[in-house]
């Protein structure tokens, strides 16, 4: 059974009387204990999709889906409050720019403690307060912060970006979630810190069997940690499969170009030669092409591409393209 099963989720933005389809019928399925990467350029709707899953989008955005199952429970049939309860109980999220995601006027300790489940503590209120403190310290230890007292007392602006992200992970772990959504957790961080954060996430996945949805625009960087990958382009589903499938046999022209655009030490590039890229850039939300949104940039594009392709599945390798590279392998 899938942990999370989403089919044809669309997110519409209403602004100035216009409706813009920011995310167009994206499907996503996650199994227990897997690490799935969600890859796409900036502006491809990855973060919006993640925020829609956890339900923190504001009223401007309208989310619709054909199927939204969490552990077999159809969330679409449940009232909003109940849905929120189920999701926030089992799903946690860490954001990019961790510093801005921590309340600047509350100490780290307070912010971790408020995420803890109150029903787990017993006794009088001072005993509960003590238990809360200990639980917060334990969480800080789990994410590799040894000086829990100093850290709990400090305010977000006193910590570095990487430390703030560790605190965010600690907060996410407070509810012992089954799924952790990590939205570019290492954006604007140094390489060593990035590796540490990824290692921490991987160990949590292995030790606690926690599924992770890892969102990034750097395919190469996250592919080392993920079991499965889903690729998005401009709010549309492109391709999904195991990391090996995506890397070794990319079906979709976009994925192929994405992989080819990553320079490798092994490939011999001639001096001053151009790197492989797709022409053009990702379209803005006001000027979306009809049909397959990659159309104007796609090397394989033909007349048929003005109609959005259906998702086809080949042994778990899903692709959404009329003229895929499947037969070439």
């Amino acid at each position: 059974m899938n942990l999370l099963d989403i089919k044809n989720l669309s997110i519409e933005l209403t602004s100035h009387g216009e409706n813009i389809l920011a995310v167009d019928r994206v499907s996503l399925a996650l199994k227990d204990g897997e690490i799935r990467g969600l890859v796409g350029e900036s502006g491809s709707g990855k973060s919006i999709l993640a925020q829609a899953i956890i339900g923190v989008l504001d009223d401007k955005w309208h989310v619709t889906a054909d199927r939204f199952h969490w552990q077999g429970v159809d969330l679409l049939r449940l009232p909003l409050e109940e849905r929120k309860q189920i999701i926030t109980k089992d799903v946690a999220m860490i954001f990019q720019e961790p510093m801005s995601c921590l309340d600047p006027t509350n100490s780290i300790g307070e912010q971790i403690e408020e995420a803890l489940d109150g029903s787990k503590f017993s006794g009088y209120f001072w005993q509960k307060a003590q238990q809360r403190k200990e639980a917060a310290a334990k969480l800080l230890h789990k994410v590799g912060i040894k000086q829990h007292d100093t850290c709990a007392k400090s305010y977000p602006h006193q910590l570095t970006n990487a430390l703030c992200q560790r605190v965010m992970i600690a907060i996410a772990l407070a509810k012992q979630p089954k799924l952790l959504i990590a939205d570019e957790p290492t954006a604007s961080m140094e390489a060593t810190n990035q590796a540490q954060i990824f290692k921490l996430l991987e160990s949590l996945n292995k030790l606690k069997n926690m599924s992770i949805l890892l969102i990034s625009h750097e395919l190469e960087k996250i592919s080392h940690w993920t079991d499965y990958l889903t690729v998005m382009y401009s709010g549309q589903f492109v391709e999904a499969g195991t990391t090996e499938q995506i890397f070794n046999t990319p079906f979709h022209p976009y994925t192929k170009a994405l992989i080819a655009s990553t320079p490798r030490a092994s490939t011999n590039l001639i001096k001053k030669s151009l790197l492989h890229t797709l022409p053009g850039s990702i379209p803005s939300l006001q000027h979306l092409p009809i049909g397959c949104r990659l159309g104007p940039r796609c090397p394989n594009a033909q007349k048929k591409c003005v109609i959005a392709p259906q998702v086809e599945s080949f042994q778990g390798h899903q692709v959404s393209c009329h003229f895929s590279h499947r037969k070439e392998y």
Partner: peptide, 13 residues
Amino acid sequence: ESNYIKAAKAKGL
């Protein structure tokens, strides 16, 4: 509108 309110919502508060 700030990010930390979004994060607090994600905490389930």
